[in-house]
Design a protein around this nucleic acid. Structure first.
Lengths: 125, 125
DNA sequence: GTCTTTAGACTACGCTTGTAGTCAGATCGA
DNA sequence: TCGATCTGACTACAAGCGTAGTCTAAAGAC
């Protein structure tokens, strides 16, 4: 269902995922911290996102407040799946292996993963 | 360094990663198994990939043989990292959690991951 | 009540991407 | 040797994307 979200659009979504609803100017302000996009640009991106059905807006006086429809977790899941399918035949282990190889996993990462695995094993039985 | 590889370009790379060097017609033939791209399309994609510096070619009679310069593992690593950074703050565990939640992990996946973790722990000490 | 500001609507424009088409030279088959 | 064929080089073109600009109506400043 959900159409492609582009890089620029993702940045906007990420702001909305962190806090919503927000007016276009608020989104632009947050984005200004790490981009140099004009308010116009941000508004265009918001329009495209609403066209794509992943952001909704409601009137608030003479402006709109925007909020995500697509949840971050859903987006994360589909993006992760796509990557796993494309590159690793859908398997998780080689994916983690690549992450580990490139940057190493912290002790905490390993602990989290172990806990996760334990839980998965319990569920699987 | 490596520029963006698009979806269509990735399909071409995937063929070359599986077997190389190949002539354009061979690549097109393999791709025909799951796409309906014309030979022309495939050639355009190969040209763009060589422009991007991720594919090299050598003359072979009156045609070229293409081979990947960018290794599959390198691409996989950078794509995986990008995803992890974008969506999971660079952490592996939540990434795996998402994969697991959506599709479950097979017993083999879990075994592989456990082995990988054991190894990582050993290395870390 | 006019002037300025601010919001959204609509438009723009060059670059990238997906998907080819045309042209010209080399080669092959007869 | 002469056309058919195959290859690469170059060109095309619409849709998507990054990045705004203009137009217009409403609201606030005085």
């Amino acid at each position: 269902m959900s159409e492609q979200i582009t890089r620029a659009e993702f940045e906007v979504m990420d702001v909305l995922w962190a806090e919503s609803p927000l007016a276009a100017s608020d989104v632009a302000e947050k984005l200004a911290e790490h981009t140099s996009w004009s308010l116009k640009t941000v508004k265009t991106l918001l329009s495209r996102l609403t066209e794509k059905g992943v952001v909704a807006y409601e009137p608030d006086g003479r402006r709109y407040l925007y909020r995500p429809i697509l949840a971050r977790a859903d987006y994360a899941q589909s993006a992760t799946s796509r990557l796993a399918d494309q590159l690793f035949g859908g398997r998780a282990a080689p994916l983690v292996a690549h992450l580990a190889e490139q940057r190493g996993l912290s002790r905490d990462d390993i602990k989290d993963l172990e806990a996760l695995l334990k839980e998965l094993k319990r569920d699987g039985e």
